[in-house]
Write a protein that binds this DNA or RNA. Sequence first.
RNA 1: CCGGGUGUUGCCCAGGGGUAGGGCGCUUGCCUUGGGAGCAAGAGGCCGCGCGUUCGAAUCGCGCCACUCGGACCA
Length: 479
Amino acid sequence: MAKDKNEFVNQIADIDTDFPQWYTDVVLKTELVDYGPVKGTMVIRPYGYAIWELIQQQMDARFKATGHVNGYFPMLIPQSFLMKEAEHVEGFAPEVAWVTKGGTEELAEPLVIRPTSETIICDMYAKWTQSWRDLPLKINQWCNVVRWEKTTRPFLRTSEFLWQEGHTIHATEEEATAEVMQMLDVYRDFAENVLAMPVFVGQKSEKEKFAGAVATYSMEAMMKDGKALQAGTSHNLGQHFSQAFNIKFLDKDGSLKYVWQTSWGTSTRLIGGLIMTHGDKRGLALPPKVAPIQVVILPIAAFKPGVTEKAREVAETLKAAGVRVYLDDSDNSAGWKFNQWEMKGVPIRLEIGPRDIENGCCVIARRDNFEKKTLPLAGLAETIPAELDSVQKGMYERALAFREAHTVEAHDRASLIAAVNEGKFVRAMWCGERECEEQLKRETGISTRNMPFGAEPIDEVCACCGKKAKHVMYFAKAY
RNA sequence: CCGGGUGUUGCCCAGGGGUAGGGCGCUUGCCUUGGGAGCAAGAGGCCGCGCGUUCGAAUCGCGCCACUCGGACCA
């Protein structure tokens, strides 16, 4: 008989009443991560790392398709590099980790462990760039970075995390601008079509832009608690770094010019976004495209003759059809397995028992909407992939509907604050002034997220301070 | 960095100066499997770390660390 739910070992906190605890429970109990021995660090366990690998593969393919190549730059950066771009130092200095000794000897110049790689890449780019023929140069790297954060949460903010950072240099400003926009769109497309996570794309305010950038663009996703997650950024660096690092080329017209530069990045934070976009009271729910296991096969009454064999056969069929399957033939009870695999977010569960075998069918249950249906065993190689597509789309649509239901317009400060405090994104007019957003942040914890492109004004005045409005802006509380 | 909470077996927790406890999980066997089964026998602990008080500390005191929640800060 059913036990008291508190006795379940893998019970997770209630998503509606204790969202932060729910998040922590989910990441730990589904074995995505564990805490590392050093404060703020996380161990990414195989199930979590498998998600990251799927993200990498599919994102990397998009980078290659847009003309980028991968490289790798050193993790240790001379202190002097960091100091070359004024805003960059100011932005990153408070959170860098230092290496001051090599073995037992004090280093002549302290080294920083990269918090981001603009500086060291600029140093190399300066060496490699002489002619307009050397441009553009478009290199991406997959690596780790370290930022000494005070408050940490698995995936969302950790002292060390994995990411990709693209760094490009171009002969003209127009070309660099086009690159910045293209990569923002690559990110948007990836978020929507692979992660099933709708995003708002737009430009960040001056206050929120990257340290050293001319302009920063972001994609912002809504989490189930109504908070915003900055899920990816694309920066127009102009000539700030090329001037600081002397990256020059001889142009066609015979004159020496500084290059125009961009950088863009996404991180393992995307996994946090995935969890908080799709998760529910039962735990994780993974979109099929990033699910390490897309279909879990559960033999029912496996001790009866023929059941396990049939389950294996189905597994082989699906594997051959390119589906990531796992056959759970452990001797846990069926009920336990149902709960376990739902918690781990597997998109489709396939049950096969004596009854099914007699009838030449199996039962599938979808993680996204809990629908169960019976499918003929013949044709699974076609019906299952189709079902996975349907889950992928269904998850995106549900997330989109959620976001739309939680995004409102506001025309004055009081209603803006009230709506955000109810867990909503607010679309409102904004004056563009730093003091205005700083005050709002200080008093309410609400920040500007980004300014959508080509948005029609909805008012004359700033919803926040009442001055003349300049931009449409999304406001929210952020992770 | 500031404030609150928590550290006892893999997990959840009880205990409260004198032999280390329970439930779950784990191992073995039987049995069982369509929504968290059952019986039996086992294994598993430097009671977060350090210092102090004491004949004796998991227990009392001080310090530290980690996790966690909230806030401040921040790509």
